[in-house]
């Protein structure tokens, strides 16, 4: 235990003595963890999307121009009574216009002069539940067109949502297989780079052994070095992944629209996640250090 400080100092001093080999080891650990984390994040996004998109739908019910505010509220109340309806929201003319301007971006100037009155009032209905309930409710809402006074059109995204949900289930499974492959490959790369680092000082280790040092005295700095590299790699990879993840999700939501995105990665990057990644990095570094030692030790 008294030697722990010495092992730690030795491990740190190795970074100064051999910066290049440590840079490569750190790089491979970071790359491996980023790849593994990327695949896991992708799998998480796919799983969430498949759950949300596969078991839910959103329907837009358009009102006729003559429908009063009280009429809209009355229709909204009726829509709420259908099975599986979780949320309803009235999209006013102003909001419709604002959304269109936002979606047109550069071309928004074309409709800036168009008044609010030209945009329809609609009610967005979010339905959740099993596929049968969702399907049946969407069908019932669709049939209100022309029957319930004030409703002139019903549009839903249910059909393609369900198909995408099925595809995402398969993609999630592929993602998990890919993760396994990445972990095995990364583990091997880390072992090889750590081994190179240990081989660089096999002469030094041999001398220490000849002075009567125990296996722990010789190997502990290498294992501690592996743990430090693993932890550093974990933190860097988490940072890169969070940055890439948020940028990717932002880009995706711009493409497919925030209202149907329904997937967020904010809950993914929790303190618990960071702790798990650090643990994985430290264990990976420790195991690769031990493996490298056993393959180089004389």
């Amino acid at each position: 235990m008294k030697n722990l400080f010495y092992y730690f100092i030795q491990a740190l001093s190795e970074f100064r003595k051999r910066p290049l080999s440590h840079f490569f080891t750190l790089g491979s650990i970071t790359l491996a963890l980023t790849l593994a984390g990327g695949v896991t994040l992708l799998a998480h996004v796919m799983k969430t999307a498949s759950e949300k998109w596969g078991s839910g739908a959103m329907v837009a019910v358009y009102m006729s121009d003559s429908t009063t505010t009280a009429g809209v509220e009355s229709i909204r109340e009726k829509l709420r009574e259908f099975d599986g309806v979780r949320k309803t929201r009235v999209i006013t003319r102003e909001l419709s216009r604002k959304r269109l301007i936002q979606s047109l971006e550069g071309d928004a100037s074309l409709i800036k002069s168009v008044e609010n009155e030209f945009f329809p009032v609609s009610i967005e209905v979010v339905i959740q539940g099993d596929i049968e309930t969702v399907g049946s409710t969407v069908e019932k809402i669709r049939k209100t067109k022309g029957i319930v006074p004030g409703i002139i059109d019903v549009r839903d995204v249910h059909t393609w949502n369900r198909k995408i949900g099925g595809v995402l289930d398969i993609a999630y499974l592929i993602g998990l297989l890919l993760l396994l492959l990445v972990l095995i490959t990364s583990g091997y790369v880390i072992m090889v780079t750590t081994r190179l680092s240990v081989e660089n000082r096999s002469g030094e280790m041999k001398i220490i052994q000849l002075l009567g040092a125990s296996g722990t005295f010789v190997g502990a700095p290498v294992v501690i070095e592996g743990i430090i590299l693993g932890l550093a790699g974990s933190l860097i990879s988490t940072g890169l992944l969070a940055l890439g993840g948020y940028m990717g999700m932002d880009a995706l939501s711009r493409i497919i629209g925030e209202s149907i995105m329904l997937v967020s990665i904010e809950d993914y990057f929790s303190l618990q996640y960071l702790m798990w990644v650090c643990l994985l990095g430290a264990v990976t570094g420790m195991i690769s250090g031990k493996l490298a030692l056993s393959s180089v030790r004389t």
């Binding site: 008294k2 030697n3 010495y6 003595k17 220490i208 000849l210 002075l211 009567g212």
Partner: peptide, 23 residues
């Protein structure tokens, strides 16, 4: 000689003492 060239004189001389638990 079998000295550890990357380490200082003091570190090399102290090694057997550390190995034997002297601090």
């Amino acid at each position: 000689g079998k000295l550890i060239d990357e380490r200082t004189v003091i570190e090399n001389i102290a090694l057997p003492l550390r190995i034997n638990g002297i601090h």
